[in-house]
């Protein structure tokens, strides 16, 4: 297969815990089958800094700060198929439990009130992305083509969807591969 006809996949973690990527790696030696058929673009597993044109974008994590929004939009622009991977990408996940607290009170608690080496200052360097007042699922920011539920989804579920997509099939998960926890 020449480079052009090979499927190109990008992955990223927004407000994620990297658990979905770890579950992805849980496909174990099937990873060798995969890299025979696909190339990886921007991903925590590669050194590519900027996402290029891809067939598939896998995104774990919800959207919790300005940089997440920026990266998500870039992925949407460059990926033909965008897949929300895991509970956080699908409904904000456990990080969205902060949605019933005010952002100011969270920052105050962590950086000012709580004992520890915080230094009594809420970080304010412009280098740092500003947190959003709420955590959002991906589909509230961009159109998402497919969802793989789970916290994290099992390796078998990720493998099923990826192999379906790489083969140009509509991905279908067996019921036993669908879980939200």
């Amino acid at each position: 297969m020449d480079a052009k006809s090979r499927v190109r996949i990008a992955t990223t973690s927004l407000a994620g815990c990297f658990g979905c990527h770890t579950s992805f790696l849980d496909i174990d030696e099937r990873l060798f089958d995969l890299v025979r058929q696909v190339d990886f673009d921007r991903s925590p597993l590669t050194d590519i800094k900027q996402v290029g044109d891809c067939d598939i974008g896998l995104i774990e994590g919800g959207v919790c700060n300005a940089e997440n929004v920026h990266v998500l939009r870039e992925f949407r622009e460059h990926c033909r198929i965008l897949v929300a991977l895991g509970a956080c990408a699908i409904n904000g996940g456990l990080p969205a439990q902060r949605n019933h607290l005010s952002l100011a009170s969270v920052l105050q608690e962590v950086y000012l009130t709580a004992p520890g080496p915080a230094g009594g200052l809420i970080p304010n360097d412009p280098e740092l992305p500003l947190p959003l007042d709420k955590v959002h699922p991906l589909h509230e920011v961009v159109h998402v083509d497919y969802f793989i539920p789970g916290c994290p989804p099992s390796a078998d579920a990720i493998w099923q969807v990826l192999t379906d997509l790489v083969a140009g099939r509509e991905p279908v998960l067996a019921q036993r591969l669908i879980h939200f926890d």
Binding site: A84, A87, I90, N91, G93, L94, A96, Q97, P137, H139, V144, Y146, F147, I148, P149, C151, L173, Q175, I178, H179, F180, D181
Partner: peptide, 27 residues
């Protein structure tokens, strides 16, 4: 707020089980 990953009822919840049965992939 159905954050199943931290819900004690996960695996024993009828709402969740119905969603699996009907293959709900996202809300």
């Amino acid at each position: 707020n159905h954050f199943c990953p931290s819900c004690e009822k996960s695996g024993a919840c009828r709402l969740q089980a119905s969603a699996y049965e009907l293959k709900m992939m996202s809300p």
